[in-house]
Amino acid sequence: MSIVLETRQVTKNFGGLMAVNRVDLVVPERAIASVIGPNGAGKTTFFNCVSGFYTPEEGQIEFQGQSLVGVPPYQIARAGIARTYQNIRLFPAMTALENILVGRHSRLKTGLIGAIVRPSAAVREEQTASQYALELLDLVGLMGEANTLARNLPYGDQRRLEVARALANDPTLLMLDEPTAGMNPQETRDMMAFILRIRDEFSLTILLIEHDMRVVMGVSDQVSVLDYGVKIAEGTPAEVQANPIVIEAYLGRPTE
């Protein structure tokens, strides 16, 4: 099985604060890999390094063998990495359908000239894209909300729309930043089932950030634990759960 994402000694600091400190991570194809850790452990910073918003001071990040360090975010997205945000970043004044179509941007071709003269190829491309966008909306159960502005959707729907928008980019690697944040236990279970389903249907490799350890146990093939920017443990969910260092990081050292 080939490796989709590999990071070596990735380090990012903010004025002396080591947000991410020498993190190694290997994500095989079609795996669901989870990165967990307490608040402020550097999980989101790590994501931002992979998606190109931060350039790590040290270390290597390779996606399907290509280095990503210093590559601008839009090119990383085009290479096949999509992500969602912990605090939803939809385009609020655009409709659900338009959000997905923007997500499909890099898979479409029509440029300035095509937008003005509108040859039949451009019109066809728009129609095919809209059709596909509607299918994605259907997949996440938002078929009836195609023309609703994103900001008017309920919270849970916004979360699912963001996932659909990420899928529209035909990603190889999907990075989900706390996809169950703010959800109740039932919604959380649904979301986890949904993640397994899209992994299989779209042949995805998934990198998942979670704050809550219990959430990821059921779906993850591998779990890495970050604490203060350092990877303190890694393994199968069962191994990690039983690891005393992990328990300490989450619950604190028992005072004797």
């Binding site: 998606s51 190109g52 918003f53 601008p72 975010p73 839009y74 997205a77 999509a82 992500r83 945000y85 970043r89 939809l90 385009f91 609020p92 004044a93 655009m94 338009e98 179509l101 923007v102 997500g103 941007h105 890099s106 479409l108 029509t110 440029g111 300035l112 937008a115 491309e125 728009e126 894209a129 928008r165 980019n169």
Partner: peptide, 19 residues
Amino acid sequence: RLGKAMRAVAEDKEAAALM
């Protein structure tokens, strides 16, 4: 497509880059 990209950039540059 161009128009939607323009609106996306106007709304949220970082999220637009991610697309």
